[in-house]
Design a protein around this nucleic acid. Sequence first.
DNA 1: GTCTATAACCCGATAGAC
DNA 2: GTCTATCGGGTTATAGAC
Lengths: 187, 187
Amino acid sequence: MYAALTLFAQKGYASTSVADILQAAGVNAGSLYHFFPGKQDVLLAVLDAYLRGIHPMLLAPAWKGVADPVERVFALLERYREHLVTTECTYGCPIGSIALELHEPDPAVRALLAANFAGWVSAIEQCFIEAGDRLPDDVDRRALAIFALTTMEGGVMVSRTDRTTDAFDDAVRMLRDYVNRLQLAVR
Amino acid sequence: MYAALTLFAQKGYASTSVADILQAAGVNAGSLYHFFPGKQDVLLAVLDAYLRGIHPMLLAPAWKGVADPVERVFALLERYREHLVTTECTYGCPIGSIALELHEPDPAVRALLAANFAGWVSAIEQCFIEAGDRLPDDVDRRALAIFALTTMEGGVMVSRTDRTTDAFDDAVRMLRDYVNRLQLAVR
DNA sequence: GTCTATAACCCGATAGAC
DNA sequence: GTCTATCGGGTTATAGAC
C-alpha cells in the first residue's frame, strides 16, 4: 500500500504498473487482487490515506514549533519547497500530479482528489481565520486559502518543469508580500 | 498534427494512442511514421507549435481591444476561464497538463515545456514592465509574472478537479486584489 | 509517399493449484 | 490467503507491397 503510495508519487498513476507495485511491496498478484478489485481501487486507498494523513502526516510536522497562524501558512509552503529540493525538483505535490494526470477520472477518484484539496484549503483557511483582525475584515479567508493552494501547486508545476526552485520561490515571495500588505492595511 | 494537438489537450499524451491520432487525422500509420520517428516526436512538434503560437494564437486574440498593460494580464487569464467554461472544466492549460503528466520527460520535451512557460511569463512580464510607475519600483516584474502563471495553472488544476470555476475565480480575484493594492501603494 | 498487416511487447486481470 | 502461469487486449513501431 505504501509501496503504491510512493510509486504513484514518483512515477504517477498510469506509469506505475501493477507489476511495479507488486515488486516494491514484495507480494504477488494473487494477494493484491484478493484485497483490491483492481488497480484503481489501490489508487482510491492511496488517496484516502493522503486525505486522512493531512493533519498527522503533513500539517503536524510542518507546524511543529510554529504557533503564529500566518507563519503556519508559509511553514507549510516551506515543506513543499523542501520536498522539491530533496527530490531535485522532480516531484512536488502528489495530489496535484494525479489531478492533472487523469483527464477523465472516475467520479470516486475525482471526489477524493477534490476532498484532498478541500482539506488542505480548510486547514489554511482556519489559519487566516485565526489571524483575526490582523487581516482586513473584507478579505475572504477561504479565497485567500485557495490562493495559497494555487500558488503552491502552480509553483511546484513550473519548478518541476524548470528543475529549479526559482519559480516556486518567486510565487511564494509574492504571496508573502501580498499577505504582508494585507496586514499593513489593517493597522 | 493539429489532430494530435487537440487530442493531447483533451486526453493527455499517454492516454492518446497513435491509433487515436491516425483516426482523427484520417491518415495511416505508414504516413505518420514517415514524417515522425516516433510518438514523442509528434509531441515535440505539438509543443513547438504551442510555443510559436503564443503570440499569434493566444495573446493576440486575448488582447484584442485591450490596450492597458495591466488589463491585458487579466484579459489573458479570462481566456483560460472561458476555456474552462466551454469544456465544462475538463481541461485548461495543455502545457501544464503535459508538464505534470510526464514524470520523467525526455530532456527535449522538458526543454520545450519550460520554453512555453518562459514565453508566457516573458509576455506578462512585459505587461508589468509597461505598467511602469503604476507599480512600486521595488516590485519584481518577472516574479509578478511568474505569480500570474502559477495562479492560472493552480487555478486551472483545482477548478478542473472541482468541476467548478470557483477556485480559479477566487485565485484570480486575489491576484487582482494584490495588483490593485500594489497600484494604490504607489500613489 | 501511402497503404495493410503484423511483429514484439507490456498491460491489467484471472484461473486454479496449494 | 498466497502462489505461479497465463489469458486477452492494447500499445508502439515496423515490414514490405504498391
